[in-house]
């Protein structure tokens, strides 16, 4: 299978992608467990899967479409009732630049 090394740098990289802060000690422990789990996953490499169609869905369902007819939205207070921080009708976050995309 792929060449890989489960080192602290990789764990740090994955942790950043996953947005999970961790201490060096946690990264160390996780790295060790990761190595074991990944080695186990590597077992799949034994199987010949050439030409096998990947299966992303449990069932073969197609074309589930809804009509473009408006339904009910939540009242703002209900929609934002769980918001950890608000400024009026906005969710409040630290300064960011621009919009995503």
């Amino acid at each position: 299978m792929t060449e890989k090394k489960i080192d602290r740098k990789l764990i740090r990289h994955i942790a950043l992608l996953a947005r999970i802060e961790m201490t060096d000690e946690q990264a160390e422990t996780l790295g060790r467990q990761f190595a074991g789990i990944v080695a186990y996953m590597d077992k799949l490499g034994e199987l010949d899967t050439d030409g096998v169609e990947p299966m992303a869905h449990a069932l073969d369902v197609r074309n589930v479409l809804a009509e473009d007819t408006p339904g009910r939205s939540l009242p703002v207070e209900q929609a934002m009732a769980n918001a950890p921080a608000r400024d009026g009708g906005f969710y409040k976050v630290p300064k960011v630049i621009g919009d995503s995309q």
Partner: peptide, 18 residues
């Protein structure tokens, strides 16, 4: 993640079919 997708996730989807 980039570089591991084929070896892990995609491989798993194929094994799932099997």
């Amino acid at each position: 993640s980039s570089g591991y997708y084929d070896a892990y996730y995609l491989k798993a989807l194929k094994v799932r079919r099997l």
